[in-house]
Each structure stands twice: as structure tokens, then as C-alpha cells.
Amino acid sequence: MPLVSIIIPAFNSENTVKETIESVLNQTWTDWEIILVNDGSQDSTLEIVNNINDNRLKIFTYSNGGANASRNRGLSHASGEFVSFLDADDLWTPDKLESQFKALQENPEAAVAYSWTNSIDETGNFLRRGSYITANGDIYTKLLLIDFIESGSNPLIRRAALANVGDFDESLAAAQDWDMWLRLAAQYHFVAVSSVQILYRVSNNSMSANILRQEAASLQVIEKSFSNAPQSLQYLKKYSIGNRYKCLTFMALQRNPSRKQGIIAMKLLIYTIKNDPSLLMAKALLKVFFKIVVMIIFSPEQTQYLITKLNRLLNIESFLGYIKLEVLSINSNSL
């Protein structure tokens, strides 16, 4: 019986699924099985995976149920003592499983090991670095503020812990991975592998590209999580909302430019400032506001040209630096 079960939900993933599976085949740790759940794909996904010759790859086909249902279906077929999820467009570095398994072996009190993440574009080129946050032990408070795990393709999890906290929430249209990590962190310790081992692919066609769906689901997760959090942590709620809106604003401004996207970004920015008025003093706010105005006023082609020509002026990477990773509890007395 394999020690690790890797669950890959795949829906119309013909352009990326082979490379994703190859990143598992190239792992230095080889005691694993792949549970690939074909979620009613209408393209050549099934044909591609059927042509991969490795008896550790097990394929299950269902009618389309969405990513959450696919992960839960995959879990029902998994036999490993440890489980990791991998989206069909993301990649792992060859040492991912071995490093995370070693971390769990060296920290038996931990139930989850996670690594750092970088983003890549649709062609696999480096796009931007992740947050590179290292947190060990009880990470619940910090995870309430920001999802620094950053990807559903990241952690290696003890199967017993997953069984205890329950399935992925199929009522969520997005942010289901953050919800799962929070439920795990509420009961178990985490251990970090301080190395980039997950390559998260940013695609305009991916589920995460729907910003408004991300917004609604993120607010659901925050409400759900804080309804279960102790009273002593309730003061963090508005900071959690503010952080999420900063991330959503950034995401909206990194997609293909359009007037509609600019208007959405403006709405998100207003909610960001509402939840974190200190941003009004931030220098990066001017860049964000200027980029929004450019997207609203100019055509997509003109906006893209200006982004290229005025890169330093329209580069908003520094905006993410205003995410609050820690908030002193003394603030709760004045909220």
C-alpha cells in the first residue's frame, strides 16, 4: 500500500495535465499513488492521462461536480497514510514530497507540512514570488489573517487529520483550500519547509480568475471561520477582511486589462480601504489608483501598451507589502 496519495482533480485540463503528472513522476520520493479524478472533461484530458504508462496512476471518471467534489471523491479512493492535493495545472519541484515527508517525520506533533510557492504564467514562465512565510506549530491566528499556504496544491497532510476535520466544503465556489487549512490549523500543528516547491499557474481561464466569485467565497470562509474562533481572536476579523480585499484588488489588476476589470478593482479597493483606513497613507495606493483609472479610461490594447511603457509607475507589487501579518491584541480593546 502506498504511503502517500496524491489527488488530482482534472476538468478540461488537456493543456497542462501531462506536465502536472510528470512533476509527480519526477519526485525523488517514489512511494505514492496518483488518484486522478476526471471531472467530466469534454476535451482530450482523459485520452492524455490514459496514455501515461505508470501503474501508480489510478483514474476515476465522474460527471462534472466541481473541484471540491472531485477532491472529496479522490479522498474516498485514497489508501495512503498521507495525502496531498495537486491541481491539474500546477507543478511540484522534484524534492517536494520528500522534503515535506521528512518535515512531518521530524515533527510528529505536526499534521500538516507546507512549502513556499511561486506563481508561473500559462506558458510556465516565472511570474512572481510568493509570500515566503515560515510559520510552525500553532499557526491558526496567523492563518486567520492571510492564507499564506497560497495554493491547494501545497501541503502534505496526515490522512487521520483530514478524516477528523471532514471533507472539503462543497458549498463554497472558491477559497475552499483556505477553509480546509483553517479547519486543520484549529486542531493541529503545521510545519514549514522553507523552500519554493510549488509552482502555482496563473491562468485567465482558471477558477481563481473569477474575482467576484473569489470575493463572495472568501467572505463566506471568513464568516464561517470567525464564527468558530474564540472571542479573544474576534478583533482580527476586520484585518482578515482587509487583507483579503488587498489580495483580490491585486488579482483584479493583474488580469487581462479591461474597463470592466478596472471597475471591479475600484470596488474592491474601496472595500479594502474601508477595512484598513491606514492604507490612505500608503504610497502604493497611488500606483493602484492610477492603474485602475488607466484601465477604466483606455482600451485594453492601450492599457497594455501603457503597462509595458510605464512599468515602474504601474507596477503594484508593493501593494501586497501592506498585508497585515500580525496585529497586537491590545487593539481589541479599542475596536
Rank of each mutant, 00 (worst) to 15 (best):
T45Y: 00
A88K: 01
A252H: 03
G166W: 08
L236P: 00
V24M: 07
S119P: 04
Y62G: 05
E22Y: 15
D43P: 03
N333M: 15
I264L: 06
K18F: 13
D31V: 04
L144A: 02
A282S: 10
I198D: 03
G242N: 00
S258D: 08
I34L: 04
N51R: 10
D169P: 03
I211V: 12
A113V: 05
N26Y: 09
E47R: 15
L328K: 12
K274R: 15
N68E: 10
D89C: 05
L269W: 01
N228G: 14
S258Q: 10
R255L: 14
S5P: 06
L285P: 01
T61Y: 03
K238V: 06
T308D: 13
Q100T: 09
A209P: 05
M295E: 14
Q234S: 05
D121N: 14
L25M: 12
W178C: 00
M1Y: 12
P155L: 04
V17K: 03
A174F: 10
S195Q: 14
L212D: 03
S329G: 07
K291S: 06
N12E: 08
N205F: 13
K224P: 05
L86F: 04
S41N: 09
Q214H: 11
D39F: 08
N256H: 13
R71Q: 05
N125Y: 10
M207N: 11
F85N: 02
I48F: 02
V24H: 02
A103N: 02
Q105L: 13
S329N: 15
Y62Q: 15
E215D: 10
M180Q: 11
D167A: 15
I296V: 14
T123F: 12
F148T: 00
E106R: 11
K238I: 08
S240A: 15
I270V: 13
A111E: 07
F148R: 00
S44W: 05
P277E: 12
G66H: 08
T45A: 06
T28D: 14
G65F: 05
N331F: 09
A282Y: 08
M281P: 05
F60T: 07
A69I: 11
L182H: 01
V4E: 00
N333A: 11
K238T: 10
R128H: 11
A67G: 07
K324D: 00
D167E: 15
A113M: 01
F148A: 02
D39R: 04
C247E: 14
K260W: 10
